[in-house]
Amino acid sequence: MIISVASGKGGTGKTTVATNMALALGEKVELLDCDVEEPNAHLFLKPQITRTEKVETPIPLIDLEKCTACRKCSDICRFNAIAVVGKKVLVFPELCHSCGGCMVVCPEKAIVETGRELGTISYGHRNGIRFINGRLRVGEAMSPPLIRKVRAAADPERVTIIDAPPGTSCPVIAAMNGADFILMVTEPTPFGLHDLRLAVGAVRVLGIPCGLVVNRSDIGDQKVFAYAESEGLPILMTIPFDRRIAEIYSRGKAIVEEMPEWKERFVDLYRKIEALATSRSGASQCVK
């Protein structure tokens, strides 16, 4: 079971929901912080980090002895990462998307693979909860390859909770694609609703069952609730705008540990997700 916690708008409470659900469920889960541009789940889970490794993405290295400047590599590159001017070949590593096309088309076998550092992946644990996060190298523009590497480290035997980045672009898709359920954390404000609509649109394209957590549910307006109803999106949990919760968060602590009544609510949230994920997949199998 893979649950991706996403939102559209940033700052709605993805990390709060992801970390508290992980802590409520305990040993059988793993938490993957895929918000690699600003990972922060570790601040709340407080895992013991046991290992950190560098991650690279493959980029071309051209053997100028063999190269005939035929331009097949620069012609196939959609990203202008290779330029051939006269007899000179230039590679722009930061533009390369690691598709490998240049290596395939080179008739002289003059292109070999080297690497560009994407960032690091750290592994750790807390009370039996497995923890992995990615941290994008400062200056690196492409986060999806790193997000995919973090996800590749997932343990299929565990319930995987993914803390996704905000937005609706490639990094979010990389953090949602292939998940069994998308948990959208939103807030009842016009900004929250605007970005939620965009994010739900992306989830619909991916065809993954989806449900909502409405955070700070007693502020703003009621439009998000009307939207959820009209779209058939189940609201699986509401979290009030409560000073105690805000204080727990601001001290980097877990709601389920400081306010034990919330532990059962997060376990219940998972039970609802489990039921929706399995029943929806059952329904789609019937359609086939």
């Binding site: 990203f79 202008n80 990462a81 330029a83 001017v85 722009f92 533009l95």
Partner: peptide
């Protein structure tokens, strides 16, 4: 999408 300067430079060359 990206690399317009590289591509334009190649064209000029």
């Amino acid at each position: 999408f990206q690399g317009s300067g590289i591509s334009a430079a190649t064209m000029v060359s």
